[in-house]
Amino acid sequence: MQNVIDFVMEIDRLKAVTRKVKPVGLDRYENSAEHSWQIALFAVALAPYASGTPDIGRVMAMLLVHDIGEIETGDVMVFFEEGLSDRKQAERAAIDRIFGILPASEADYLRGLWSECEEEQSVEARFAHAIDRAMPALLNLRNQGQSWRENGISHERVVKRLKPQISLGAPALWDYLEAELEAAKHKGYFGA
């Protein structure tokens, strides 16, 4: 029991990891724990639009663990690809340490979910990535491009980075976003 309690208290630190986008209607930046919770529920609501027939419980579990490594590495916008390999190594070391707090079977299960999500080979992982990529875009669309403008992110860069994963995991979601992003470009929601 103590290991589980220690793990739960350790992951509480995810609430302190600040992201670059603000929740709709708020003047503060969201944290990674809020993001994980929101996209897990998004998976349930969006399930009918997934490619294939993913196990939604497994998708939710992946989305709840996918950013745990950020407790030690912090969050970096998906649009910043410089140093990606080093960041992924650091994130892997962090999840090994954090999941290692748990008894071996639970640690192995969570590491497996995290790895599966990272590798994007299963229908569940592809759907999880589509949702993870889409949520910040949806927030930016509601916030008049807040983080895109603050960080100099162009429309072209958004489309280039989001389209492959979203169109693969949830094609109807990409169709929706593509039209919304085009409209946002004409409204001046992008930087650079």
Rank of each mutant, 00 (worst) to 15 (best):
E81G: 05
H66E: 04
F79I: 06
K88D: 06
S122P: 07
F127N: 00
R126M: 11
V78R: 03
E91W: 08
P164K: 11
C117R: 03
H155L: 12
T73F: 04
A172V: 10
S154Y: 02
L162H: 01
R58P: 03
E81W: 12
A137V: 10
I166D: 00
N151E: 11
W174G: 02
A134C: 11
E116R: 04
V123H: 06
P164E: 09
I101F: 07
A104G: 09
N140L: 06
S115M: 13
R87V: 08
I95P: 02
P171L: 10
L168H: 09
A93N: 14
V158S: 01
P164W: 08
K88C: 11
D132L: 14
L173T: 01
S154H: 01
D96P: 05
R92N: 12
L110E: 02
W114R: 06
G152I: 12
D96M: 07
G145T: 03
E82M: 05
L64G: 03
G152Q: 15
L138G: 01
P54Q: 09
M62I: 10
P103F: 09
T53E: 13
K160A: 15
N151G: 06
W148P: 02
L102N: 02
G69Q: 00
K163Q: 15
G69D: 00
E106T: 08
E120Y: 00
I56R: 05
D55F: 01
G145W: 00
C117E: 03
M77Q: 13
Q144N: 15
L162Y: 05
R126N: 02
F99T: 00
Q165I: 12
S115E: 11
G83A: 14
L173H: 03
H155Q: 13
S105L: 13
I71R: 03
E150C: 06
M135E: 15
V123T: 10
E156I: 08
V123S: 10
G145V: 07
A104H: 13
Y109P: 04
R157C: 07
R142A: 12
R126K: 14
S105K: 09
E72G: 02
L138Q: 04
V158W: 02
R126P: 01
N151K: 09
C117K: 03
L173Y: 01
E91D: 08
R92V: 07
L168C: 13
R111D: 11
L139V: 11
P136R: 07
S154L: 05
I101E: 01
A170V: 10
V159Q: 07
F79S: 02
G74N: 08
N143Q: 14
G100Q: 04
S85L: 11
G52A: 09
I56D: 03
S154K: 04
R111N: 14
I98D: 00
P54F: 05
N140F: 05
E124R: 04
F127P: 03
V59P: 01
S154R: 08
F80L: 14
A128W: 00
G145C: 09
V59T: 01
I56V: 15
S147F: 04
